[in-house]
Structures are given as structure tokens and as C-alpha cells.
Design a protein around this nucleic acid. Structure first.
Ligand SMILES: NC(=O)c1ccc[n+]([C@@H]2O[C@H](COP(=O)([O-])OP(=O)(O)OC[C@H]3O[C@@H](n4cnc5c(N)ncnc54)[C@H](O)[C@@H]3O)[C@@H](O)[C@H]2O)c1
Ligand SMILES: NC(=O)c1ccc[n+]([C@@H]2O[C@H](COP(=O)([O-])OP(=O)(O)OC[C@H]3O[C@@H](n4cnc5c(N)ncnc54)[C@H](O)[C@@H]3O)[C@@H](O)[C@H]2O)c1
Lengths: 217, 217
DNA sequence: TTAACGTTGTTATATTTTTCACAGCAAATA
DNA sequence: TATTTGCTGTGAAAAATATAACAACGTTAA
């Protein structure tokens, strides 16, 4: 069994994103080195990744953009729509709802939850807010497999436990806390402060690289 | 020259985050296997990473939490405060400002920018909004090295070019677009839709793993 | 027709990253 | 005192990931 690396998955998702931005009437085919330029990866890597999804291009014209999108989608997407829940309709939660709406055909935020009575039952960004009392029930009913957590860190572990008990297998966690989850659940952490710290660190590295080059040229 | 891997940097940032959450009066020391439990990495990996920053623990008591925080901070943080700008004071931008405020001593969002006249000069989340006309000027004046982009994809490349021309070396990009930047600039992309796609993909993988185990046990 | 070209698919190679395994050591225990 | 215990630090091995290299093959141009 020849499983595909997580890194490759990430890149495939990016390729698709980029290909979707290309007008197929203007550009029906694309070469690996063009994609390399656009993504910052090497052409060899891109060919490798494409190989993994079982699509083949033409040595003459390169890859057919539409066919490549389809192959990647067959690989990445579920055959049917996957339902997503958002928990915590605060500043961040609203921004996410607003941004996500209708962007991906195979992924749909079908429910949002909050424990703030003043928000419950209001329709925010096209999605009625459900009280977290009904979290497990609703998740099961709607067959939700993925949850986005935009709640304070204090509540995140409890809510994670509860959505997992209701059958969620994938979590996108924006709370600044490391969740403790069973091995059959995938967690992607998106801590913004850690992201800024990382960017700041590498910004400094880049600065010293630059002075290095200046010294040696 | 024995440079440290980006993966190690990410983990170090996480270790610090976790250590900062521990009360040093209750727990002055910690073992690698305890950190392993908390982070989900292996104990060996953690020892390796700690080695990289030049800190040593005691074989008897493990690592001193405060000393370890200090060593990591010496390694990750700039000696002086690094200034950060946020561009695009919309839904997401506001959430970021609100969340970030005062969390990290060595990182400070000192300016926010927008091109919407109705926002300019208003103080939003404790930060006065500056018109993007003054982007380059202000960035230079305030010696800003890191920028957070929370603007629509259409404007992102232009703004990126401009902040780079003004001296920014690290970008945290929330717009769903792959930026084209010179090699001496570090870009961290945080596309939320790609993150959900990834979580959804691995959620399905986890589901099939589970049925695999069920079949074979 | 023939040669040169440019690209893919894929194998081989190199590099990076993680894990393993254990010496060394201080404390606890017998 | 001698032995066991349980940790760190680290060299060696393994696994994962990325790069390089090139045969195969239509297309173009001579
Ligand atoms: N704001 C950001 O940009 C940002 C970035 C990264 C991470 N975060 C984190 O994301 C989380 C949310 O940030 P925010 O700015 O939207 O905060 P917020 O206070 O605006 O929103 C939090 C929402 O969660 C709800 N909530 C609280 N406890 C709950 C519970 N137990 N069950 C259900 N709902 C609950 C609140 O009613 C509120 O609506 C925080 O953990 C924050 O640290 C925020
Ligand atoms: N909302 C989210 O959760 C989310 C998540 C990921 C990515 N994004 C992306 O982040 C960006 C912002 O999202 P949002 O929900 O905050 O949108 P928004 O429309 O609420 O905010 C965008 C802000 O950027 C400002 N702006 C537009 N063009 C500008 C320019 N050229 N210079 C300066 N300011 C400019 C606007 O005036 C507005 O204040 C979008 O690209 C969106 O796709 C959003």
C-alpha cells in the first residue's frame, strides 16, 4: 500500500487552487516548470506530485489544466459533500463564515454553534446559530465530519471532546492550545501568534542572510 | 555552519507556548517525555530540539522550565522588540488586532492600514488606522519588519510589493493567493480554505483507517 | 528524412528529518 | 557499599522527502 505523503497533499491542494485561477480558454495547458514558477516548488517535485494522483500530461503540451483539476479533485475531495461545523461565532468565527461561504462545492459549513444566548437562533452570515447544548445531537443528525474551532482556549478541549464523541474526525483549531485527541482524529492547529513568531524569526534570518551576501559580493 | 530546521523552529515555538502555561511554583522542572505527552511529538525529538538551542537539562530533574523558556526565547526572539504592521482592517483584520494585543512582549502590532476612507484615522482595537497612501513612509519610519496581510486577494500582490519595497522581510499572508516575492523575504501563507480542505481530507483518511482496524481485529 | 529540441514519467541519488539505542551519570534503594 | 532506576545527550540507523538525471517520444526545423 503506497500511501501519499501529507506534504504532497498540501501541495496538490495548492496546485488546484492555482489552476482554478487560470482561465482555460486562455490557457488550456501548463508545463511543470510554469507551475514551479507559480508555486515556488521545483518542476521535478510537481511532476512527482502529479504522478501520485495518477494523472499524465503530454510531453508536448504539458498538463491539461481542466483534466488536472479533475484528477486532483477526484483524489482530494470526498465523492459526496462533506459537512463542516463552526463552533464559536465571535470575531474570528464570523470572518470565517463570511469568507468560506460557497467557495468550495464539496465542503459546506452547515451549522454554527455558540453558547451565548444572545447569538443563538440568529442567522449570522447565512447560517443559523445553534446552542451548544445541542452540539452532539446536531452533529450526528447532519453527519458532520469536520469542525472549525473559533472559541476561547479555555473551552476548546471540552468542545473538542464533545465533537469527537459525536463523530467528528477532522478539527481545524484556532484556539491557542494543544488539543489532546485520540489517534483516529486529525487536528490542524492554526495559532496566529505562533505564525507571527515564525514569520518574525525568519524575517530576521533573511535579514542576516542579506548582510552575509553583501559582505561576500 | 549548522543551521536549524524550520520544523524545529515551529516546535520550539510550541514548547515555549506550553511552558509559559505552566506555573513554575508548582512545577519547576519537566521531563522530555512529559513534554512529549503534551505536544504529541516523541521524547527523542524534543531532546534533539532542545539540544539545538544549546540548553541542557539535568538527567535527574529534567529541564528547568524557566531556563528552558529563556533559552528558547534567546534563540527565537529578536533582542529588541520587532514591529509588526497589519494591512486590511476588515472582519479578519479586526479579529487579529483584538486577539494579538499585548500577547507577546517582543512582538508588537504598531500600525494598521486600510484604503477605506471611512476607517482611516479611527482607532480600531487600540490601533489608529493609517491610509495606505502612507504605507511605505510609515513602515520605514516605524522600522517595521513583519506584515500581516488581511486584504482581499486582488490587492495582496500589490501591497506585498509595496511593503517589501519599504523593508519588510516577513509576511503572514491570509489572502488566498500565492505571492511572488524575492528570495530574501519570508512568506507564511495561511489560507483557511486550504486548511479546511486538508482537515477534511485527513478526516476521511482517519475514517478509513478506522474501518481497516475494525476489519482486522 | 534526419537531427535537434523540450517535456514528461520514473528511476536513482541526495538530503533532510525522525527515531532508535545506549553510554553516562546522579539519586534512590537494598 | 553495590545495585537498580530513570533520565539526558548524542551517534548511528531508518524513514521521509526532495532533487537530479535521463530515456522515451512527439514536434519542429533543416
Ligand atoms: N481573533 C483572532 O484572530 C484569533 C486568531 C487566532 C486564534 N484566535 C482564537 O480564536 C478564539 C476566538 O477568537 P475571537 O476573536 O473570535 O473571540 P470572540 O470572543 O470574539 O469569540 C468567541 C466566541 O466563542 C463563544 N464561546 C465561548 N465559549 C463557548 C463555548 N463553551 N461553547 C460555544 N461557544 C463559546 C463566545 O460566545 C463567542 O461568540 C480564541 O481562542 C482566540 O484566542 C483568535
Ligand atoms: N475572513 C476570513 O476568515 C478569512 C480567512 C482567510 C482568508 N481571508 C482572506 O482575508 C482577506 C480579508 O478577509 P475579510 O473577511 O477581513 O474581508 P473584509 O472585506 O472584511 O476586509 C478587507 C479589508 O481590506 C481593506 N482593503 C481592501 N483593499 C485594500 C487595499 N488595496 N489596501 C488596503 N486595504 C484594503 C478593505 O477596506 C477592508 O477593510 C480576504 O482576502 C479573504 O479572502 C479571510
Amino acid at each position: 500500500m503506497n500511501s501519499i505523503s501529507p506534504k504532497t497533499i498540501e501541495r496538490l491542494i495548492l496546485y488546484r487552487r492555482i489552476l482554478l485561477g487560470i482561465n482555460p480558454d486562455e490557457k488550456s495547458h501548463i508545463y511543470s516548470h510554469e507551475l514551479a514558477k507559480m508555486t515556488g516548488f521545483t518542476a521535478a517535485q510537481i511532476r512527482r506530485d502529479i504522478m501520485a494522483v495518477g494523472y499524465s500530461g503530454s510531453p508536448v503540451h504539458g498538463y491539461n489544466t481542466q483534466a488536472m483539476i479533475n484528477s486532483i479533485s477526484d483524489f482530494i475531495d470526498a465523492p459526496e459533500v462533506q459537512n463542516v461545523a463552526l463552533i464559536g461565532v465571535g470575531h474570528l468565527g464570523r470572518a470565517v463564515l463570511n469568507y468560506f461561504k460557497g467557495r468550495r462545492p464539496k465542503l459546506s459549513i452547515v451549522a454554527s454553534f455558540d453558547n451565548d444566548e444572545s447569538k443563538v437562533n440568529r442567522v449570522i452570515q447565512g447560517c443559523r446559530v445553534i446552542h451548544t447544548n445541542e452540539l452532539e445531537k446536531s452533529i450526528k443528525e447532519m453527519n458532520i465530519q469536520v469542525a472549525i474551532l473559533t472559541i476561547p482556549a479555555e473551552s476548546a478541549q471540552e468542545i473538542a471532546d464533545r465533537v469527537i464523541s459525536a463523530g467528528v474526525k477532522g478539527i481545524l483549531n484556532y484556539a491557542p492550545i494543544k488539543l489532546h485527541t485520540p489517534p483516529d482524529v486529525y487536528v490542524e492547529n492554526r495559532d496566529m501568534i505562533m505564525a507571527v513568531e515564525k514569520a518574525a524569526y525568519f524575517a530576521r534570518q533573511k535579514m542576516s542572510e542579506e548582510s552575509f551576501y553583501e559582505l561576500h559580493t
